[in-house]
């Protein structure tokens, strides 16, 4: 079994009025099936309200399924007894960098997770140092988080998760509030973790350019998984993506337009380099 497996996963948000009567039910996850293998880099796309964040919170056992089952590293998240282990195995990084840093000093924040799971003091120090080094923030260990940029704070948050030595990290729109430099640093950190340490990464994002290097892309709409494949496969389906209110990388869009205008370009162009190569070939 893969690291994450969902079968007929349903989650409903129930809104009640003051007397406790059900006012409305909205289905955030609708009989979702999904498989992720250990060590993969997965990107999840979908417009706001498509159910991506709800899915992310299930993987970390912050929410439990209304129906269906979700296994994280073989453990059923619905089972109360598994909750702590699941959270240890699958760490989570959230969107707002300020609202997930608990301590007033970087190294104390990174230690927060290991402290909670009862790691002995000496080992916490090792883990803190290693994690901060991995995300390139070691020299900021005694800084106050308030003195860091958004991108640096997100990398501290990643280190905080890393210190729990998870098999899998879910990043829920980690770059939405960052400037381009911060965005690039965070994505590079996530890629390195995946390529060098073999950590499974699930990256939820709006930025199509961040998806290009993923192993697989999942597209969600109305609580369902509506498309999946390699980035190249996904981005060659421009019309379908537009239908789900999603964009494609700019270069893919340009290649698509050129193709329509009659240039015989290959499908699935995602990066500038690829487009340059294709056009140069065509010229020759």
């Amino acid at each position: 079994m893969g690291i994450i497996k969902a079968r007929q996963l349903v989650h409903e948000y129930i809104r009640r009025d003051e007397e406790g009567n059900v006012e409305s039910i909205s289905t955030a996850l609708d009989h979702l099936n999904l498989d992720v293998e250990q060590g993969q880099f997965i990107a999840v796309l979908g417009h706001n309200g498509s159910g991506k964040s709800t899915l992310a919170k299930h993987i970390n056992a912050l929410l439990t399924p209304t129906e269906g089952t979700l296994w994280v590293d073989g453990l059923d998240v619905s089972d109360e007894e598994n909750v702590m282990t699941v959270r240890e195995n699958a760490g989570m990084v959230f969107q707002n960098p300020d609202n997930q840093i608990i301590a007033s000093v970087v190294e104390e924040d990174v230690a927060f997770g290991p402290e909670n799971i009862g790691v002995p003091t000496d080992e916490i120090w090792d883990r803190v140092e290693q994690s901060l080094r991995t995300v390139g923030m070691l020299k900021y260990r005694t800084y106050s988080p308030n003195k860091l940029s958004g991108g640096q704070k997100q990398r501290v948050a990643i280190a905080g998760v890393l210190a729990m030595q998870p098999k899998c990290i879910v990043l829920d729109e980690p770059t939405a509030m960052l400037d381009p430099t911060g965005r690039r640093d965070v994505i590079r950190t996530a890629l390195e973790l995946n390529r060098e340490k073999g950590v499974t990464i699930i990256l939820i994002t709006h930025y199509m350019e961040e998806v290009v290097e993923a192993d697989r892309v999942f597209v969600m709409d109305e609580g369902k998984l509506v498309m999946q494949g390699t980035p190249r496969e996904i981005f060659s389906r421009v019309e379908e993506l537009k239908h789900y209110r999603l964009g494609v990388p700019q270069m893919t869009l340009l290649a698509d337009e050129l193709r329509r205008a009659g240039l015989p370009l290959a499908g699935g162009i995602m990066t500038r380099e690829e487009l340059v190569e294709e056009l140069a070939k065509l010229r020759a």
């Binding site: 959270r87 989570m92 104390e108 909670n116 790691v119 003091t121 120090w125 803190v128 729990m164």
Partner: peptide
């Protein structure tokens, strides 16, 4: 939520960095 996600469950069984 962020605290829960990092396995916070009160003071029981907690170790300390310092």
């Amino acid at each position: 939520m962020a605290m829960e996600a990092r396995c916070y469950h009160g003071g029981d069984g907690r170790t300390q960095l310092k």
